[in-house]
């Protein structure tokens, strides 16, 4: 508003306002151009490519000339014997990760917030943020090594008189290993966002509470937690938006034939069927099914949060 001068208004009267604006802000629009081209080519063109989920895509005919098949690819997936095991693995791994992994950063942040020794606090933060910056290849390699027959874990177990186990080949441990290693890698970094929210709480609230005789626990329950709630809700909504993502790279790297039955997830299935067997249409349909469930969950959680009078994303 403050940029409109009388001269601009006069010009605008005689010209199409759209063109006037484009001209007036031409340098800003010029700056936007690379980003817009990028988002169209690398984000929206693939979205257009989703139509092959409803076609029998043939490389030589291209997207447009391949014949339509309606929902045939989806029916094939839903009727596949492998559909339910795949859904169960994906949802179980993802839900375990949310159940056990989501609260931990909040708890660590609350504990860090109570620490009065600043250099101790900084040291702990420096240490626990670090694994986030390691790749899943490195962390996967570490897990396999630590759990190998002559690795550290089995070494400790035999030292205390137990028997060593081939952890990575045992289906009953696979999901636990996924959840724990995810917690190891990401929980520390997950505290950052909550630390930011905690730093934003007005110290006067605490001072007033102390004067009123509130105990440490009462302060946490009536000031800290309510102040943290909007951040928690937003993080939860965002997390629900990836309910069908059980952690592609992690699972892909750790998956081995002996744990296939409990560890194969939708993403690894799409990779195998799509890129290794080149069933492009079918795997795109499976991928689209996954994205749609994700969207339903993020919108649904957002709606519930809104109805409950809580913070919401949009």
């Amino acid at each position: 508003m403050n940029d409109i001068t009388i001269a601009d208004v006069r010009v605008a009267k005689h010209q199409n306002p759209f063109i006037t604006n484009i001209h007036k802000y031409r340098y800003l629009y010029l700056l936007l151009l690379p980003g817009l081209i990028w988002v169209i080519v690398f984000r929206y063109l693939p979205m257009y490519g989703i139509v092959i989920a409803f076609k029998d895509y043939n490389i030589f005919k291209g997207i447009n000339d391949s014949p339509w098949v309606g929902l045939a690819n989806f029916n094939r997936f839903f009727q596949d014997n492998y559909f339910w095991p795949l859904m169960r693995n994906t949802l179980l791994i993802s839900l375990y990760k949310i159940m056990f992994g989501f609260p931990i950063p909040i708890i660590i942040a609350l504990m860090l917030n109570e620490v009065r020794n600043i250099s101790f606090k900084r040291t702990v933060q420096t240490v626990i943020y670090f694994p986030h910056f390691l790749s899943w290849v490195i962390v996967g390699g570490l897990i396999v090594t630590l759990l190998s027959p002559d690795g550290l874990i089995n070494g400790l177990i035999t030292m205390f008189g137990g028997e060593s186990t081939t952890w990575m080949a045992r289906p009953e441990y696979f999901r636990t290993i996924l959840v724990l290693s995810d917690i190891w890698k990401e929980s520390g970094w997950g505290t950052v966002i909550y630390m930011a929210a905690l730093a934003g709480i007005d110290p006067q609230l605490y001072e007033a509470a102390v004067i009123d005789g509130a105990s440490r626990l009462q302060r946490m329950r009536h000031i800290t937690l309510p102040s943290l709630m909007p951040t928690i809700i937003i993080m939860l909504i965002l997390r629900m938006g990836s309910i069908m993502d059980a952690g592609f790279e992690q699972v892909f790297l750790l998956l081995n034939p002996s744990v296939m039955a409990v560890g194969d997830i939708i993403d690894t299935f799409v990779y195998r069927v799509g890129l290794e067997q080149q069933q492009y249409s079918f795997s795109t349909a499976v991928g689209l099914f996954k994205s749609v469930i994700n969207i339903i969950f993020v919108v649904g959680t957002n709606y519930i949060a809104q109805k409950a009078g809580q913070e919401s994303l949009f």
Partner: peptide, 30 residues
């Protein structure tokens, strides 16, 4: 820039890609 015409619309073009995407295979094909 709050005064830039079309800012909100363009913002949505970018924001939407955080919620939905083409997925592995269509991206690979592009």
């Amino acid at each position: 820039k709050r005064y830039l015409p079309g800012r909100n619309g363009i913002m949505w073009i970018f924001f939407f890609t955080m919620l939905f995407g083409g997925g592995l295979i269509p991206t690979y094909l592009v």
